[in-house]
Design a protein around this nucleic acid. Structure first.
Lengths: 109, 109
DNA sequence: ATCGTTCATCGTAGATATACGATAAAAGCC
DNA sequence: GGCTTTTATCGTATATCTACGATGAACGAT
């Protein structure tokens, strides 16, 4: 964008938008599902489960980590990624709050 | 992106990602709240409620419309935007399904 | 017909996102 | 020490997003 206007919005809106952006790509949704389905969480396994190159998957994992939805520990040659259930619940709650604020709107027009 | 790989993912993941992208910006979250809080829904009112230029707001409204979360009817000089409650509920359900699939994951590492 | 109001769209500039190959870095193994 | 495996990061190309001023289109009012 020309210049970010995100400072002009409420902090909770910015936070929710950031989470939403983290899941605004099918690859990242798929990654969350893969991490949930396995308890080993190696990056290589995620790569095998997705139709993407290793570098791309690593980049998506980084985005999920930056959003706080996933926790990753680099352990030498291999690394361990897992879901941050607490953060996911906060995200879920923020979403529910938004829907709650929205769904009693009167029909217009 | 170099070339979109979205065809390689499950349809429901692509759909959820598209919805998530629609709310992946604080301005669009704010717009949804404004539309919910009023029953008149004129574009001008949304513009006044946001710290953005009219052209930018119109563009965000278009994005929300493209995602199906908002319905808009152009009526000559003015236009009427309202929330599509049905679509919002489908979105909410898809999200809940995702969280449901994710939150019983075993802790790893 | 000419304004004025309201909104969409165009054109554009700069910022991000997406994807990949190539390469570097870290650890174990020989 | 070299070699392999695993993963992150760099560099890069293309695509999309974000924002705005300027302009156009539709209608009501004068």
């Amino acid at each position: 964008m020309a210049v970010s206007k995100k400072d002009a919005f409420a902090a909770d809106e910015v936070a929710l938008a950031a989470w939403a952006k983290a899941v605004a790509h099918p690859a990242r949704i798929a990654i969350l599902k893969v991490l949930a389905a396995r308890n080993t969480c190696l990056c290589g396994e995620v790569v095998e489960a997705l139709p993407l190159a290793q570098a791309t998957v690593s980049q998506h994992l980084k985005a999920l980590k930056a959003a706080g939805l996933v926790v990753g520990e680099i352990d030498g040659p291999r690394s361990c990624y897992c879901l941050d259930q607490e953060a996911l619940q906060r995200f879920r709650q923020a979403f529910e709050d938004l829907f709650g604020a929205i769904n009693e709107a009167a029909a217009c027009c």
